[in-house]
Design a protein around this nucleic acid. Structure first.
Length: 274
DNA sequence: AAACGCGCCTGCGGGC
DNA sequence: TGCCCGCAGGCGCGTT
């Protein structure tokens, strides 16, 4: 489900409810996520402590607590994080419920259970193992032509797979990889090390502009994505190629094609993207 | 060693 | 109506 724009949309929508709230209880209704949810960690480091802020690194949401512990949440393919009144009916696949002293609840719901809810103890966050091999944030100054050019020349993998590899740059999943390559005019199967200088620059700018535009529209709601207030996003209306196979390219009039790369649907304009 | 294939899960829509 | 199939926004492991 969520790529960087959707996770950032949730971060922004949930932070006003979480900042300065105290976690009073955590119900783990289903512990079998990507990794087992550890109730003991919540008892030890989270319950009774105050949330200071909500950050994002890659597609992870990070609740930073006053005691310097943190709650790390990844939404996988189908995860949702929403604000609910304490008496609201509990939807199916609601696996973890955080009770706050403001009497509202944050509920983690994830039908496919590919997501993750875990705790880092105080001081552990900065060196947490899930973050150690991550590449740069795409919207940071560190994601620039110099950085990209240096890594691209070392890789022969298709450029689409390269930008979806979190060791290079984080947050770009299947939707935005397709969209960014369309905008950059680069064919998805091109080997990473075959990109010319101007193509490398266009790739950087396209990734940044597509992600920024998607955040501005509150993310892409294909099916079930909702922000913390259960509102959909609107970037699906601006998708140029994703799931548009068989339709006319809005830029040149050619027909958008679909191929499969590494098991993922890949959409591109055979005329605009070379 | 880099790059790919596959499995982890549930739900949905299409075809028969 | 109902069944079966393919497909879905991510990630990590094993194999080559």
């Amino acid at each position: 489900m969520p790529e960087l724009p959707e996770v950032e949309t949730i971060r922004k929508s949930i932070e006003p409810f979480l900042a300065n709230a105290i976690v009073t209880a955590v119900d783990v209704r289903e512990a079998r996520l990507r990794c087992p949810v550890n109730s003991t960690d919540f008892s030890r480091w989270i319950i009774g402590n105050r949330i200071v802020s909500v950050a994002r690194r890659s597609k992870y949401l990070i609740w930073q607590l006053e005691n310097d512990a943190s709650v790390i949440i990844h939404l996988g393919m189908s995860g949702r994080l929403g604000i609910f009144a304490a008496d609201a009916a509990i939807e199916t696949h609601t696996h973890v419920i955080f009770h706050l002293d403001s009497s509202i609840q944050v509920r983690y719901r994830d039908p496919r259970r590919f997501g993750l809810v875990e705790v880092t103890p105080p001081q552990a966050f900065a060196t947490w193992f899930r973050f150690t091999n991550l590449g740069v944030e795409p919207l940071s100054a560190a994601f620039n032509h110099h950085y990209v050019a240096n890594l691209l020349k070392k890789s022969k993998k298709p450029i689409k797979n390269w930008i979806m590899d979190a060791q290079n740059v984080v947050g770009v999943g299947n939707i935005y990889a397709n969209e960014a390559l369309f905008k950059a005019g680069i064919h998805p199967i091109r080997p990473a090390n075959s990109l010319k200088n101007d193509e490398q620059r266009r790739l950087v700018e396209s990734v940044k502009s597509v992600l920024t535009a998607a955040i501005d529209k509150g993310g892409t709601t294909l099916n079930d994505f909702r922000n913390a207030r259960s509102e959909p996003g609107f970037f699906q209306l601006d998708l140029a190629v994703y799931q548009n196979d068989g339709q006319v390219c809005g830029s040149c009039g050619a027909i958008i094609e679909r191929i499969v790369m590494s098991g993922r649907s890949t959409f591109y304009c055979p005329s605009c993207q070379r």
